[in-house]
Amino acid sequence: MHGPVTSGWLLMALCAMTGAYCLLRTRGETGERRRTARAEALMGFGMAAMAVPAAVVTPPAWAWAVYAVLFGAASLRALWFSRRSGHHLHHLVGSSAMVYMALTMAPGGGGAAGHGGHTGHGMAATAGGVPLLTGLLLAYYAAYVLRSGARLIPVAAAAGDAGGGPAGGGGGWAARPELALACRMTMGIAMFAMLLTV
């Protein structure tokens, strides 16, 4: 990613903390919820790795291929599980966006050949359709964040009205639905910010 180093580190820390929380959620969940938490943890850690400022650490050229393969596999997994849950369609979009960013940021990938493969400056000059794809992904994540934020307000109010304290419904803080929704919204904001750099 290009831009100020401080914002890159903050984005990296935010994504890493979100991934860690999602990983903690896998311990208290089963079945579909556990699969969802695992997918979200992978996305959080992958975004954190991509958000490391290039001015500090320039990833090796092969790292982008690893990201593309890893998130390509995650896309196929999300496609498979989307038969059961519509939320996996969101994971499919997210994983596909990560593949897109990895291919774009790779040296010679159309965006950043002269900048260590980590900036995405030249996207407007690449073959047709890429600016449109970036715009569509930005619009998707903007809508997703707004929708998640709107859903977060009633969930937080309902949890506060329950009178159950911080651990409200049993299962502790790791199982609170409003925290999971806040993590999803946070990752949506982070993805929007990363796509702006493409």
Rank of each mutant, 00 (worst) to 15 (best):
H90K: 12
T30C: 11
A63G: 09
A112S: 15
L179N: 01
A158S: 14
R34F: 07
P53M: 14
L24M: 14
G94N: 06
R84F: 10
R151F: 10
L196G: 15
L146Y: 14
G28N: 10
M185L: 15
L138I: 04
G31H: 13
A51I: 04
V145N: 03
V155G: 07
W9Y: 15
M105V: 00
A125Y: 12
T18I: 06
L92I: 00
L89R: 12
V52H: 09
A49N: 09
G114T: 05
E32D: 14
L14N: 00
G170I: 01
G94A: 15
F81E: 11
S82I: 07
A157K: 15
V56C: 09
A127E: 13
T18V: 06
L133C: 12
G188A: 02
L133H: 06
L146G: 15
R77A: 09
L146K: 06
L42Y: 01
R35W: 02
A55S: 12
G19H: 01
E178R: 05
G163P: 01
A139W: 08
A175W: 05
M50C: 00
L14D: 02
L136D: 04
A41T: 06
G135V: 08
V99C: 05
R184A: 07
T58P: 03
R27G: 11
A74F: 01
G109V: 01
G170F: 07
M43F: 10
R34K: 15
G114S: 13
M1D: 03
H91S: 04
V130F: 14
M105D: 01
L89D: 07
L196I: 13
F45I: 00
H115A: 12
V69D: 05
G109P: 05
A112V: 00
V52L: 14
P60Y: 04
F45G: 01
L195G: 05
E40T: 12
T30R: 15
L136Y: 07
A175P: 00
L92C: 01
P154R: 15
M50P: 02
M101A: 09
G169K: 10
R83V: 09
R35H: 09
H115W: 13
A143S: 10
A13T: 14
P53H: 02
M194D: 09
G128S: 13
S96T: 11
P107R: 01
A65I: 05
M191C: 06
T126Q: 12
G8Q: 01
L196Y: 11
Y140D: 11
G46V: 06
P60A: 08
G94M: 05
M194E: 02
G149V: 12
R27Y: 14
M191Y: 00
V130H: 10
A142V: 11
L152S: 08
M101G: 03
G28Y: 11
V198A: 14
S75R: 02
E178G: 02
G168R: 15
T26L: 03
E29F: 14
M98V: 09
G108A: 07
A143C: 15
H115V: 09
L70H: 02
G86M: 12
P154E: 15
A65Y: 07
R27M: 13
V66N: 08
M194Q: 11
T26G: 05
E40L: 15
A74G: 05
G120M: 03
V155D: 13
G188Y: 00
